[in-house]
Design a protein around this nucleic acid. Structure first.
Lengths: 204, 204
DNA sequence: GAATTAATGTAGTATGCGTTACATAATATT
DNA sequence: AATATTATGTAACGCATACTACATTAATTC
């Protein structure tokens, strides 16, 4: 049913055709949000970057926060750290987690503005956008937690808290001028404690 | 000269007397900025909390960013982590740095909103306020760096980067719901690597 | 070709922001 | 008492924001 209706809508679209492709607009908006942060990007900035007018924007995305939600969706599939690829069951847990931290350091240092799109989004001043980013962050933490829990159930919570805190710090410092080498050195230092923490049944 | 003029002004103030005490207003504003962040606090919020009107505010503080600068000054003297008291030359460097991290964890968890006034301020969207907070942060990092460099000059930069990154992460996570115990556990884990890092001439 | 449907461009709206003009009130000086 | 000085209360200002009403344009459907 829905499929038929959708294909009908796609193949035989009535009315005036779109002058822009919303799917192609998402990566452009993603870059804006990543570079300047959600609050600092205005709808006017986005519409100007897309070469469209506000009504087209709102017809396509509903709201600024709605666009941001789509950006985060796209981010999870294309731009985020490939946790599933790094956290493989056939390798030591500590080694995998250290690689997550190092990969975060590398990625956070790429853009001039720096930092993680999601982690920075969790601190914006718009409730809806912040909740979207928080949901994204919570989902990522759950992946890490489940990966640890499979082999070190007692350490999962604590080590997940630790890893996510370090990642937040890396993102913040990337925004405040730490370069790639600084971030990588910090990530390596932070990672050096993970192996022992996994083995400890209680807090160090 | 200036002293005479100032005392004259203080003892024999012409004109209508102030209805509020700007010095007493600073801690109130400090609480607002700490709880909600610079961007989320409007001048109207501050004037309402102080029971004054905008002209009184601007006569006393010049601007919102000007008030924030005074808040940061007050913060450095009263509310900040007492680095000078913790980083004493008569104790092991690693031990002192771990206490800094733990003290940060404790303080960041006090307020319901959580986090560090300065570190959160470095990420606001107002250039002047952000620069004020950044200057505050840079000064604090310099204290840590100098403390380390006195005994471990080769490790000073790297370990300072590490400690400040962890503190940024603790502040961010305090804002995102981590409680005191979680933050303390993370701080202890992060601290466990410092001793070895100080001894290493090169990166781990 | 007429009707229908949908996206566009123009030009706004309402709201909140940091900030200020201006007349008034309250004090010290003369 | 008259004047000078300073802070106050009222009432805005200019600007930026997210968002929208409405007429128009461009396509499909009948």
């Amino acid at each position: 049913m829905d499929f038929v209706i959708m294909t009908t809508n796609i193949s035989k679209s009535r009315g005036r055709p779109r002058r822009f492709d919303p799917d192609a607009a998402v990566p452009i908006a993603q870059h804006l949000f990543h570079a300047r942060g959600y609050d600092a990007v205005s709808v006017a900035d986005v519409t100007e970057a897309l070469g469209i007018n506000p009504p087209s924007f709102y017809a396509a995305f509903g709201s600024k926060a709605g666009l941001y939600a789509r950006v985060l969706d796209n981010w999870a599939q294309t731009g985020a750290i490939p946790l599933a690829a790094i956290l493989r069951p056939d390798r030591p847990v500590a080694e995998a987690l250290v690689e997550v931290l190092q990969e975060a350091a590398r990625r956070y240092a790429i853009d001039p503005a720096g930092g993680c799109l999601v982690l920075e989004g969790t601190r914006c001043n718009d409730t809806e956008a912040r909740d979207s980013a928080l949901a994204c962050n919570i989902a990522a933490e759950a992946v890490i937690r489940d990966y640890i829990a499979a082999r070190y159930p007692q350490a999962a919570e604590r080590v997940t808290d630790y890893v996510s805190t370090v990642m937040s710090g890396l993102s913040a410092k990337a925004r405040n001028g730490h370069d790639r080498e600084q971030l990588l050195a910090t990530a390596r230092m932070a990672g050096a404690v993970i192996e022992q923490a996994l083995s400890d049944g209680v807090a160090i």
